[in-house]
Design a protein around this nucleic acid. Structure first.
Lengths: 343, 343
DNA sequence: TTGTACGCGTTATCAG
DNA sequence: CTGATAACGCGTACAA
């Protein structure tokens, strides 16, 4: 006779025996109490509590061929931008039956592809991915995943399935337009980690310059492939000033850079906003508290997370929203750092 | 005859048929190529690729009664402190066969307990939890989890299993001692979200005051249960100044608060460091770049993550480190914001 | 090195 | 509302 290889855990069968019903009844009672009579429900409840039963997710997934796992892929856990999105995601998940499985792609399309394969091998109920710059292979995987998919952070013309975000190009354009309208004329672009999303912000910057008849000047665009930080903002600004001492405003690819610019300007006794206008991107919490307070483009990160999950869950539960692409827009938060140059 | 309820996915059996071997051979080939002859390995490889086979994690977990999932519980995804820890964790996990499952307890012992139950129902290979302030129930669960457990972020006398962190009380004491030695005499404590960890930092502050013969003054301790932010740092400082205009230094429970203090001081024309010494806690990247640069207590967050995972994996693979408790210490980063009061 | 037989704990299906 | 039976896809134990 073969050996039993039980794991020591309490199983449905044992609960069933204790409650004097069949296993399937316990299974039903746990998943949908409505389907079971009140009396048996009570006995089952008691048995569950007495034995300390906890369902085995693996067995459940195997038998039902689905899980309540929602896979979320973000490019960075260190970036404040994504932590806000995550907060929205957690909030939206609260009280639902879905769990979160988080993957960190570290801005690598290859890692994204690998993580996606791993996720799909767990039969997720739905997937959330960041951005619209998936590799063709990743895109193919997503299109064949037999679960709903939401792309967040950005909108674009060709959603895999659903989308919630905003146009980074339009956002950047609006921010730079604000600097131009405030009277700044030699507006620089400071950018770190020049990924496709940042490239689109650069395009928005160029769009605005053109619109306001401010000729382009390659010296005013200072970028680096390194990932952004406050310190890096200071360096980029130093480089900019050495190239073009007459620069009168900077549009920063994100808020860390902008804060670094502010500190470096203070160090060099360059007055913000009279000698230098500063504008960031994302509007992290600190921007409003800085001295002077820092202008930035507010993006609705928490909402992207929350609405992404809402759309996903609706799709999972066969109640797809009508609009497949939701544009949450942005808002230029005008503050002291961009009130205009001295005249 | 019963209906088959196949899911449409490619299974081991199909790969086996394609490669003309038995299913178990494919299973072995995938998990440990050494066990299979080179020739069959190649056929299996080809079949896997041809059919696009991906293992079913649920089936694997059910049959083997274990997973390669490492569960990590952190109190916040928004807090920079934990994102650094996470980065260390991801780095350490890179190239291993283990996956991360992240849980966000939102500083709630109840949520921690719930998440733990969910995690354990998936038979994790190991667990990482943050801090040493688990509820008795949580602690009991952890002690009965049949997998290794590492507590990170803090050290304490009574590890559940393993531990890697530092003493927040000693850290705070060292930071405040530095302020005292720089010549500051009326040193305040500014704290947000007064969780037990923050309370221990407050004790360290009091230890240092006592050591330097600086009598305690309740007015110099300004706290709030709200969670910390730069803005909140400004408010707390405002409250402090209205209570005790003669304060000459602040020790901040974290760096966000410290930055908020700096901005608010600038707004009020209070000179840092001559009229006010400022010291933060954690030494986030921005501290060194601020103007003036901000003194802070550096903690080794990335290393805590990395070494936590290393210890855990060693334990999982039956190679437990000898030291169950690793104290990574801290370092006072002396910068411009605490060079001493005007004399 | 490879294969056979079976069990892991649950749910789908069909019958009552 | 409840139950019997057979899958779900894979790994373990043992045998060859």
């Amino acid at each position: 006779m073969r050996k039993a290889r039980r794991s020591g855990r309490v199983t449905l069968a044992e609960v069933a025996r204790e409650a004097d019903v069949s296993a399937i009844t316990v299974s039903r009672a746990l998943r949908d109490p409505e389907q079971v009579s009140k009396a048996t429900m009570e006995r089952i409840d008691a048995a569950v509590r007495k034995l300390g039963y906890a369902p085995d997710m693996a067995a459940r997934a195997l038998a039902s061929r689905h899980t309540n796992v929602i896979g979320v892929l973000i490019p960075s856990v260190t970036n404040n931008v994504f932590s806000d999105v995550l907060r929205g995601i957690y909030d939206a998940l609260d009280g639902t039956r879905y769990h979160l499985q988080l993957g960190n792609t570290r801005y690598s399309v290859l890692e994204e592809e690998n993580l996606l394969r791993i996720f799909l091998s767990q039969r997720p109920a739905g997937l959330i991915v960041s951005g619209i710059d998936q590799s063709p292979a990743t895109r193919a995987i997503l299109e064949n995943a037999n679960c709903p998919v939401v792309q967040i952070m950005e909108t674009g013309p060709d959603p895999v399935d659903m989308m919630v975000g905003f146009s980074h190009r339009e956002g950047a354009k609006a921010a730079v337009a604000h600097l131009a309208e405030a009277g700044y004329r030699r507006i620089a672009f400071l950018g770190a980690r020049m990924d496709p999303r940042t490239q689109r912000r650069l395009q928005g910057y160029q769009d605005a310059l053109k619109q306001y008849g401010l000729g382009e000047d390659a010296d005013l665009i200072v970028t680096t492939p390194r990932s952004s930080s406050v310190t890096l903002g200071g360096w980029l600004f130093g480089e900019l000033v050495s190239r073009r001492p007459d620069v009168d405003a900077v549009f920063c690819n994100n808020d860390d850079i902008a804060l670094g610019v502010l500190f470096e300007a203070q160090r060099r006794n360059i007055a913000v906003p009279h000698a230098l206008g500063v504008c960031g991107f994302n509007d992290l919490e600190m921007m409003a508290s800085a001295c002077p307070s820092l202008t930035s483009l507010r993006t609705h990160r928490e909402r992207m997370g929350r609405e992404g999950i809402d759309m996903l869950i609706r799709a999972i539960e066969d109640d797809r929203p009508e609009e497949r692409v939701v544009d949450l827009g942005f808002e230029v938060m005008r503050r002291e750092s961009s009130t205009g140059p001295a005249r």
